[in-house]
Design a protein around this nucleic acid. Structure first.
Lengths: 114, 114
DNA sequence: CTGTCGTACTACGGCTGTCGTAGTAGAATA
DNA sequence: TATTCTACTACGACAGCCGTAGTACGACAG
């Protein structure tokens, strides 16, 4: 049974997270679950990957964080909100994806005999 | 102008090379040019990336090398030939690609407003 | 009342593949 | 005589993913 390529996802984890933040602010644990269900269990993001993506994207100005007052699960939730710059980045990534896909598919054989 | 994502390609350079070797043995410089033209100049593989891919794939048994007797361009050409194991790997990668693409596209908005 | 599961993270270090830079070497072209 | 093209090789840096582990609280089962 084929697995997702984490080397492809590599370039798109940030994009996936930003997509989910378009609906409004969210936090690690929830994003993680929404990725899993959104991908129909075919892709489960690793916690470390997810949280390091948050740190990186905040540094780059694509998202902003704010902390919940209430404790949830023994920790304070850190929420993230997408910025305008994040929206632009997301858009650019979507365009890039179309191009990248086209290129790769010139070298991929669908179902045919190899 | 959007550029190809080298973080996506990362997982597929090996696959692209193997695809080109399906036609018969070839060598670095030629593969490089065939990638560039095959991708309509939208993707140009870096030499270091290409040659390190050869080394890796030979180690993994996906390709075999043999050296040309004749000198070409001041160096002896090293040809590579795909193995059965390489063909299997290529096939698996093609299937993986379909799945990965599906997953990513659940989080990508086409042309729509963001 | 003790242990496991779920929530919600943080820290650290290793690995892989890509990439920049640089060098070698001969033939061909200007 | 110099640049371009061919055909590589070596070295080291870097980014992002991932395994492992630890912290901390509530809820629920046995």
């Amino acid at each position: 049974m084929a697995e997702i390529s984490s080397d492809v996802i590599r370039g798109y984890n940030d994009t996936i997270i930003l997509y989910l933040l378009l609906d409004g602010p969210s936090y690690g644990y929830e994003i993680s679950k929404r990725i899993r269900t959104g991908a129909e269990e075919k892709y489960i993001i690793k916690e470390t990957t997810l949280y390091s993506a948050f740190t990186r994207m905040e540094k780059n100005g694509y998202i902003e964080s704010f902390t919940d007052e209430v404790m949830s699960g023994g920790k304070k939730r850190t929420y993230y909100r997408i910025t305008d710059s994040g929206r632009e980045y997301y858009k650019a990534k979507c365009e890039e994806w179309q191009l990248t896909k086209e290129v790769i598919e010139k070298f991929i054989v669908k179902q045919g005999e190899v």
